[in-house]
């Protein structure tokens, strides 16, 4: 039976070749595509994925269903994707440094090289302080880290989180520096605590702080990006490099991914969708400019090359702060 089918397929392929039609078997999904968001609705990942859902549907010609499976720092939802059949109908999502560090954190035995990745946006973290704080610029912040770390409470969204990775990266470049780490249930509550004055500062994602910064309820003092950025309605924010020139700031990248082993035609189709629908998406562009995000429509090996430094930095950051269960060097992360 198998042989017969194979023969038929070969014949069919020959026939199409003879006519000279393009790609022989384009993947046409015949049921809805599931994207598992391993975080709650309304969070950073959820927003980044919902922003492209419409364009994905247009490109794939099928409904896209977003399923929120929060818990375990992204591990539960990602486990679901690993358990599902590798047929292209179930996709994972998140921030790429989460996917890249499940193995380092010891929660899942999977690495970024095991996945086909498709990214849509990136976001920088911003160090902000309560407007009433004595910290006027990032220089003051560094001084506080050295002289009175017990007064420098830093609100983060737990471990792992963008804020945690950021503040650990800064700490690694401030000799003798320390801070008081205060974990909240998510980016929003962390930001709120700084607004309310319970904590002095927060190093969470810009998208989570944007409204508060615009409303002058937070004072941004440095951005984790190579260059200073101009925020719409809030003025210029200097780069951390101005004070810590040796620090290599890494942004956060969001996207969707499918485990390697999905059929080649699925990958070809998604590449096509990314070229034709996502790169040109106006919905994505509008969402990004509203939320202080940057469109980052790269996929496959090209995308991996671009984001590898960020993943590596996150992995070693976990190791340096003692949160790694496996040594990153054993998982193929060269030491920075």
């Amino acid at each position: 039976m198998m042989k017969k089918l194979g023969l038929l397929a070969a014949l069919a392929a020959g026939a199409t070749l003879a006519i000279g039609a393009p790609a022989s078997a384009e993947w046409k999904p015949d049921k809805p595509i599931r994207i598992i968001v391993p975080w709650g609705a309304g969070g950073s990942t959820d927003q980044a994925i919902r922003a492209i859902a419409g364009d994905l549907e247009a490109g794939l010609g099928q409904k896209v269903v977003i399923v929120n499976q929060p818990g375990g720092g992204g591990a539960i939802g990602t486990q679901t994707v690993l358990d599902a059949p590798k047929d292209g109908y179930t996709w994972g999502s998140g921030a790429i440094h989460d996917l890249g560090t499940y193995a380092v954190r010891g929660s899942l035995n999977t690495q970024v090289k095991d996945w086909h990745i498709y990214l849509d946006s990136m976001n920088a973290t911003v160090i902000s302080v309560n407007p009433g704080s004595a910290i006027k610029d990032f220089g003051d912040f560094v001084t506080w880290m050295k002289t009175k770390p017990s007064d420098l409470s830093v609100a983060i969204a737990g471990i792992p989180s963008a804020g945690h990775t950021t503040i650990e990266a800064i700490k690694a470049h401030v000799e003798g520096g320390a801070y008081k780490s205060v974990a909240y249930d998510g980016g929003n509550p962390a930001v709120i605590s700084t607004v309310a004055g319970e904590t002095v500062s927060t190093p969470q994602l810009l998208s989570e702080q944007m409204e508060m910064i615009r409303g002058k309820k937070l004072r941004p003092i440095a951005v984790m990006a190579a260059e200073a950025v101009e925020l719409e309605g809030a003025g210029k924010v200097e780069s951390v490099k101005k004070w810590l020139p040796k620090l290599d700031p890494t942004p956060y990248y969001f996207g969707i991914w499918a485990p390697k082993g999905v059929p080649a035609d699925v990958v070809a189709k998604m590449n096509d969708v990314w070229e034709k629908n996502i790169k040109t998406s106006t919905a994505l562009k509008k969402w990004a400019s509203d939320k202080g995000q940057v469109v980052f429509p790269y996929y496959g090996e090209d995308a991996l090359k671009r984001v590898w430094p960020a993943i590596r930095a996150a992995a070693w950051g976990l190791h340096n702060s003692g949160q790694a269960k496996t040594n990153p060097a054993d998982l193929g992360f060269e030491k920075p």
């Binding site: 818990g71 375990g72 720092g73 591990a75 954190r105 471990i159 249930d185 949160q323």
Partner: peptide
């Protein structure tokens, strides 16, 4: 039950991924 949010320690999960989120 589940992974707590301050130090990411897994309480009462006994090694199961399912219980990570409580």
């Amino acid at each position: 039950v589940g992974q707590e949010g301050i130090h990411a320690y897994q309480r009462f999960t006994y090694g199961t991924t399912e219980l990570l989120g409580g």
